[in-house]
């Protein structure tokens, strides 16, 4: 699980071109979206990009943007969702 989360962070940074951010800067539970000053301050286009990442890297398709928003709350929630979709 830790490996998956670290890998996800690297992939997120690459997919969204987060130039000044390192994987260790991203807290597992920090909010990815929103302007609150905390978290990464991503927007709805980033959320679409992250769904592309899930599909290309993990072959998980998120159809409904409303559902997507929940899955993409944090790195933790993304990792949980990916685990739940992978065969045990």
């Amino acid at each position: 699980m830790e490996d998956l989360k670290t890998k996800l962070k690297v992939q997120i940074i690459e997919a969204l071109n987060l130039q000044d951010i390192k994987p260790e800067d991203i807290d597992d539970n920090a909010a990815l979206f929103g302007d609150g000053g905390e978290g990464l301050g991503l927007d709805s286009i980033d959320s679409l990009e992250l769904m592309v990442l899930m599909e290309r890297q993990y072959h998980i398709k998120v159809e409904d943007p409303r559902e997507g928003r929940k899955i993409l709350t944090s790195v933790q929630s993304m990792a949980d969702f990916i685990k739940s979709k992978q065969p045990a």
Partner: peptide, 13 residues
């Protein structure tokens, strides 16, 4: 390249 699946929206926008 991706046969119309999982496309990044940014270039389109």
């Amino acid at each position: 390249t991706y046969q119309e699946t999982a496309l990044n929206p940014t270039p389109f926008i």
